[in-house]
Amino acid sequence: MPKPDFGFAFAPNRALDLSAPLLPEVQVVLETEPSIRACMACGQCAAVCTAGAFTPLAFYRLVLQLRGGDVAAVGERARHCMLCGKCQMTCPRGVNIRNAVLLMAALAPPKP
């Protein structure tokens, strides 16, 4: 008998699997800069970001993607940052964003 389908199915290639443990390199980033955990995705960092106006950089999204294990994309996007620090001045949760971005940028394979 076919399994009943209530329409709750989703495309497995797009689905996040939270059961998978955090990648070791992601854990290192979170442990080196624990203030990243305080991010509540308010988006103020992205709203003030100059680099974000021209590139796909948005710090709060990097945090979400980091936990999702998408380290290549996180590293790539983090490299758009100019380290101007406006995001860090505005962050209501006191996340040490510059250090976080540097750690994230180091996740991408080095440029040849």
Binding site: F8, F10, A15, L16, L18, S19, A41, R61, L64, G68
Partner: peptide
């Protein structure tokens, strides 16, 4: 199952 609405992606665990 849930939707991670901040990422706009479905998730399961």
């Amino acid at each position: 199952k849930a939707e991670d609405t901040l990422q706009g992606r479905p998730l399961h665990l």
